[in-house]
Amino acid sequence: YIVQPSNYFKDKYKLVMASTLVDINKLSTCKVRVLNPMDVEVTLRQKADVGREELIKRIVSVIAEEEPEKVKQKHGQLRNVFEVSSTQTKLHQFMDQPIPDHLKDLYEKSVDDKSQEQQRSVAALLCKFGEAFSKNEWDVGLTNVAEHSID
């Protein structure tokens, strides 16, 4: 059979499912590849209706019979396709550095009701991206405050 996402699945979950060729005589369950392209965790409940199958009578060719051995041992585990650790490591380099003068006001406004650790993170973030903000009215920087009327 070929398993494909149902319209209900496409509408309800912000997930992408790959159409997968399965042999239901091999195992009681089949594995289909799902990608979560969004930044939020998605929970799928047991028995959730996620797809439909279609009987394939004749297979012309199969590109790969199964997952590579390494991946096979990690069934059910999730693989990151987006690495964030390098950014986080770099941010640590800016921890406990003095906040640039032109961002002190922004920092004070940003850290209300935040924990000590969060305040340190905000300070490090502002230090890291300090050059992105205008230092004074003559410095356009990478961002600029502009006023315009709304029709």
């Binding site: 059979y1 398993v3 149902s6 997930l15 499912m17 399965v22 239901i24 009681s28 369950t29 089949c30 594995k31 289909v32 590849r33 799902v34 990608l35 979560n36 392209p37 969004m38 930044d39 939020v40 965790e41 998605v42 929970t43 799928l44 409940r45 047991q46 028995k47 959730a48 209706d49 996620v50 797809g51 439909r52 199958e53 997952e67 069934h75 059910g76 999730l78 693989r79 990151n80 396709v81 987006f82």
Partner: peptide, 24 residues
């Protein structure tokens, strides 16, 4: 036939997963 999730599963953001499903 319906294709249903075999067990509760959480899929983190920006990841891909192999999902166990039943074909009922």
């Amino acid at each position: 036939k319906r294709v249903t999730v075999a067990d509760d599963v959480k899929i983190s953001g920006l990841t891909e997963a192999l999902l166990d499903v039943y074909i009922e």
